[in-house]
């Protein structure tokens, strides 16, 4: 293990893995974590650090600054264009040994869920994955200022509360869309540029080529304000495709349960649930979805939930604001027709 044994009192601040998505924008989930991290750092009376590794990283710093970090540590290099599971963990290991943060939060993305367990191993510390709640507690038994991490357990049937009392850093990955992002004005941010010192020649994994994905949402589902989701009850790819028409009219995105994804009616990035995205739209419309916990655990923060299902006994009705007991595709077509005529007459 490359983590030195240092007493836990020497670890202080809160760090956010401020991920850059598709080398073009700061990941929404990272901004959400900066806002949550701000709250935690204020509770503890410590500093909030945003750590940014990217190609031409400077371009992202103004956005990051608006979410109130005390310090931005950034590193800019061609080798940081994409997340790399050899480079990122090595640089982080060095930085953690040098700066000793007490808490590090990562978005539950491919990069975050790769980086976090590697660092946990290197520092012999705990990691709690896919958290949906974070707070601070003082305990007589376990100590003061501990990070309290809540996460779904047993495929979403229960919520477990986890702490990491004896080791540092305390680490959590967090589903995107779980926390609100909030801009903060008038805070002074110290910006520190780090040198890039990683020997690219020592990479053991070599990339040969990179073609493109076939079905990609325009807006990541986590950020969509309207999500039109479809499940097995739509019956066919053709019926499923009608969802896109409604999404167009409502300015939303199409989501799915695992069933359409497995049937290749749509791409994997549309899957909502425990193995997919966590969403928090203003409106969730569920067409032909039964509402298994693996799906619904990730939609419960939607403001309004409408379900269309031929069965009144489907579990999704329990968590719906409005329930329609009809054929999913028929309602879908009628609604589209109706909204089209309304739009025309206005």
């Amino acid at each position: 293990m490359s983590g030195k044994q240092v007493s836990i009192e020497n670890y202080r601040d809160v760090w956010i893995f401020t991920e850059i998505q598709d080398h073009e924008r700061v990941l929404e989930g990272a901004l959400e974590l900066l806002s949550k991290g701000r709250e935690i750092a204020d509770t503890l009376g410590v500093k909030l650090y945003a750590v940014v590794f990217a190609l031409e990283a400077e371009q992202y710093l103004p956005v990051v600054e608006r979410y109130g970090p005390d310090v931005i540590l950034y590193c800019s290099d061609r080798g940081l264009k994409h997340y790399d599971s050899q480079i990122f963990p090595d640089i982080y290991t060095r930085l953690i040994n040098e700066y000793r943060p007490s808490i590090i939060l990562f978005p539950s993305t491919e990069a975050g869920t790769d980086l976090a367990p590697r660092l946990a191993q290197r520092f012999g510390t705990g990691l709690t994955s896919h958290c949906t709640g974070l707070s601070i507690m003082d305990s007589d038994v376990y100590g003061k200022g501990l990070l309290v991490m809540k996460r779904p357990a047993y495929s979403g049937n229960a919520i477990a509360t986890v702490i990491c009392p004896r080791r540092r850093p305390q680490m959590a990955t967090v589903q995107q869309g779980v926390f609100d992002k909030k801009e903060i004005h008038g805070r002074k941010t110290e910006i520190v540029r780090l040198p890039f010192n990683f020997d690219i020649d020592q990479l053991s994994v070599v990339s040969l080529e990179a073609p493109k994905r076939w079905d990609k949402p325009k807006v990541p589902l986590e950020q969509a304000s309207v999500v039109i989701a479809g499940g097995r009850g739509l019956g066919s790819k053709r019926n499923f495709d009608t969802l896109f028409e409604l999404a167009e009219i409502l300015g939303g995105e199409v989501g799915a349960t695992r069933v359409p994804v497995f049937n290749r009616w749509c791409g994997e990035e549309r899957m909502i649930g425990q193995t997919g995205k966590t969403i928090r739209p203003q409106l969730y419309l569920g067409f032909g979805i039964s509402g298994q916990i693996q799906h619904t655990a990730s939609i419960v923060d939607s403001e309004i939930i409408v379900s269309i299902n031929t069965s009144t006994a489907a579990p999704i009705t329990e968590l719906s604001d409005y329930v329609i007991t009809e054929d999913a595709h028929a309602i879908l077509c009628r609604l589209i027709e109706r909204l089209k005529t309304e739009k025309r007459t206005v």
Binding site: P165, A297, E318, L319, S320, D321, I324, R334
Partner: peptide, 29 residues
């Protein structure tokens, strides 16, 4: 030897209003 400690587990429930929209298709829409 485990750094993480689970201090609580609770069961999960998310009930809502469940207003049933009834009538013929047009009324429902």
């Amino acid at each position: 030897g485990s750094p993480t400690v689970v201090i609580e587990t609770e069961i999960f429930s998310h009930k809502r209003g469940k207003e049933i929209l009834s009538g013929d298709m047009n009324e429902i829409i």
